[in-house]
Design a protein around this nucleic acid. Sequence first.
DNA 1: AATGCGGGGCT
DNA 2: AGCCCAGCATT
Length: 347
Amino acid sequence: MTNFPLLITEWYQRNKRDLPWRSTKNPYHIWLSEIILQQTRIDQGLSYYHRFIDHYPDIHHLANADEQEVLRDWQGLGYYSRARNLHFTARQISKERNGVFPGNYTELVKLKGVGPYTAAAIASFCFGEHRAVVDGNVYRVLGRFFDIELPFDSGPGNKHYASLAQSLLPQKDHSTYNQAIMEFGALQCTPANPNCIECPLNHQCLALANGTVTARPVKEGKTKIRKRYFDYYLFLQDGHVLLEKRTKKDIWQHLFQFPLIERSEVLSPKKSPAPIEGFQETHIFELPKHVLSHQHIFARIWLASSFPDEDIWQNKNWIKVPLNELEKFPLPQLLHRFVQNELENCV
DNA sequence: AATGCGGGGCT
DNA sequence: AGCCCAGCATT
């Protein structure tokens, strides 16, 4: 038996941050915050949370918005399927359930974009269900305190962590404890440089006693990075540009871009063929290397000061967009930055 | 069970 | 350069 939950909760009362979703049980607000915070740090997601609350005060506003508008508000946050699932689920709950969220884990986990973690969080925070949350923080805190050698990203490891977390969940104030263990992982038992010296659990932490703190939790999957080479073609004439929508199952699906040709090797300006008949570039922008979790993208933008004849590209899914409407189209972050920082120099 | 999906921050 | 982040959907 351990007083682990009590110590975690007491630490939380002394150290918790004041965050907007901590002072409500509104399922719409909690759900929105949890979707935004999937694989995303609070510092990065907070402004997006405020923007969505501002633009879509309740779930019906979100349901009645256009998907492209939602994607535009999500621009820069990454994992864009979250935004599409958010919008889909808002429409579903608004139309089919009159805006009322499912009230328990089993029903919540059926929603698109809501998995075991998010369903547990909503069930616990909004409805007081006795259900332990298991996120990256929980893997780390439990993996260290109990010095768990089982990888958390394996089948057996996943089940072990889930049942351990559930067994530790107190009967009283379990919702607060769920918040507490995640906050403890985010602020005290951090991935790098955990503050073990001042930790209230340092006398009972098995990983600290065994000198395995930095080795916990164990993960078996390793990341492999792919290099990609993108040639964008920016046709700029009379205050208009050509855009195309990404439709393939690939990065940035459903976002827009300048017409793109992907090369299989390092770009050679002399050998790169023109994207279309009559293309004549006037400038080449080298974009900074775009570093993502599983790929590095080397991109350049070829600028042409005139459009090709429309009958040449009308069979492609390219659209002609006035520059002052460009901001309505969700772009990948590397193109958004280019538009913000460089495009005005071309016009 | 394994893989793909963003962008930012840290070591 | 590699790992992590209030994970999930797809295959």
